[in-house]
C-alpha cells in the first residue's frame, strides 16, 4: 500500500470517472493520488466499493453484467494469491466485464535493490511472514549466500518478532549469514507451490516504479499478454503514469530508513494523519504516522 504510486490511484479514479465500478481493499481509500484520494473521488460520485475479499469484485461483475468492474490489485505475493485465485475463477467462468488494475509487487527484487543502495547499509532482514508463506523461506537464500545478509522469517505475535530480532542479533554477533525460519508453523522452505504456479501462469515480472524508491527491475507482477483482456490499463487504453508526488515528500527516504520522519520538512507541517501527503502518514502502522503519534505527541525528540 505504502509503495503504490499516485499514478495508480489517478488511473483508478479515471476509470471510475468514465463509469466503471472500482473495487478496492479498505487500505487504499485514504492514500493520496496526484490530486485526489479514492475517498475524495467517492465523495464526488465515483462508484468505489470497499471489499474484504477479491471474490466480491467477481460477484459484483456477475450481478451487474451491464457495468464494467475494475479491481484495484495492489499488494505483495501474499495478496497476489487471493487476487489470482479470483482471476483464475473469472477466467474459467468467462466473466467479460471484470478487469484488474495491477500494481502487484514482489518482495525479493526490492530486497535485492535495497542492499545495492550504499546509503542503506543493511545488516539483516526480518522477513515478512505471510509473504514468505507464499514464496517460501528459500526465496531469501541468495541474500544470505551471495550477499552475506542474515535473514529470519518472523510471525506476527509480539513474541515472534522478538524471537526473530534475537535470532538476527545472534547471527550478526557470530558473523553468520543464513536463512532461519522460526515461523515454520506457517512458512515452509518452498512456500506454497500451488500459488506460485498460478502466479507464474497469469503474471510475469516487469520493471515498476515504487513510491519513493524509484524503478526496481523485475519487481512488478503484471498480467501476461495472453490475459490482457483482464488488464484494465490495456482494456481501456489507459497509460498509467508515475503520477505527481509532492516535491518535498521524503517518504522514500523514510521507507529506506535513511532519515527519521521528523527530518521531512512536511512532517507535522502540512502532512499529518488527518491530511496525509505521503503514504507513510496514512495507516497507523506507517512510519510517519507512528512517529507522529508516539514521538511528537509526547514532546520527545529523535
Amino acid at each position: 500500500m505504502c509503495v503504490t504510486g499516485p499514478g495508480t490511484i489517478d488511473a483508478a479514479l479515471t476509470l471510475a470517472e468514465r463509469g466503471a465500478i472500482l473495487v478496492t481493499f479498505g487500505d487504499m481509500i485514504r492514500v493520496p493520488g496526484s490530486r485526489l484520494s479514492l475517498a475524495e473521488g467517492r465523495a464526488q460520485g465515483a462508484d468505489i466499493r470497499v471489499c474484504y475479499s477479491p471474490l466480491e469484485a467477481l460477484a459484483l461483475a456477475q450481478e451487474q453484467p451491464e457495468r464494467e468492474v475494475v479491481f484495484l490489485a495492489i499488494g505483495f505475493e501474499t495478496t497476489a494469491a487471493p487476487i489470482i485465485g479470483m482471476l483464475d475463477r473469472a477466467v474459467r467462468e468467462g466473466v467479460g466485464n471484470l478487469s484488474l488494475l495491477t500494481a502487484l509487487k514482489g518482495v525479493p527484487p526490492a530486497l535485492a535493490a535495497l542492499i545495492q543502495d550504499p546509503e542503506c547499509a543493511i545488516d539483516a532482514f526480518l522477513c515478512p511472514g505471510h509473504v514468505s508463506a507464499i514464496i517460501g523461506a528459500n526465496a531469501y537464500q541468495f541474500l544470505a549466500k551471495t550477499h552475506h545478509i542474515p535473514c529470519v522469517v518472523a510471525g506476527f505475535e509480539a513474541l515472534d518478532i522478538l524471537h526473530g530480532i534475537r535470532s538476527l542479533l545472534v547471527q550478526h554477533i557470530e558473523g553468520q549469514a543464513r536463512v532461519e525460519n522460526p515461523y515454520a508453523r506457517v512458512v515452509r522452505a518452498n512456500g506454497n507451490p500451488r500459488v506460485q504456479a498460478l502466479i507464474r501462469h497469469y503474471l510475469h515480472p516487469e520493471d515498476v516504479e515504487w513510491r519513493g524508491l524509484g524503478v526496481i527491475p523485475g519487481s512488478g507482477l503484471a498480467l501476461r499478454p495472453a490475459f490482457q483482456d483482464f488488464d484494465a490499463a490495456h482494456r481501456f487504453g489507459l497509460q498509467v503514469t508515475p503520477g505527481r508526488v509532492h516535491p518535498k515528500c521524503l517518504c522514500g527516504d523514510v521507507l529506506k530508513g535513511k532519515i527519521m520522519p521528523s527530518r521531512c520538512s512536511l512532517f507535522g507541517r502540512g502532512c499529518h494523519p488527518d491530511h496525509p501527503v505521503g503514504p507513510c502518514m496514512v495507516s497507523t502502522e506507517g512510519a510517519c504516522a507512528a512517529h507522529y503519534k508516539y514521538v511528537s505527541t509526547e514532546g520527545a525528540t529523535e
Binding site: G26, D27, I29, A39, V50, G75, T79, S283, T284
Partner: peptide, 9 residues
C-alpha cells in the same frame, strides 16, 4: 482515522 473499514495489511 475516519471510517471503520476492513483492511488486508
Amino acid at each position: 482515522q475516519g471510517e471503520m473499514l476492513p483492511r488486508i495489511c
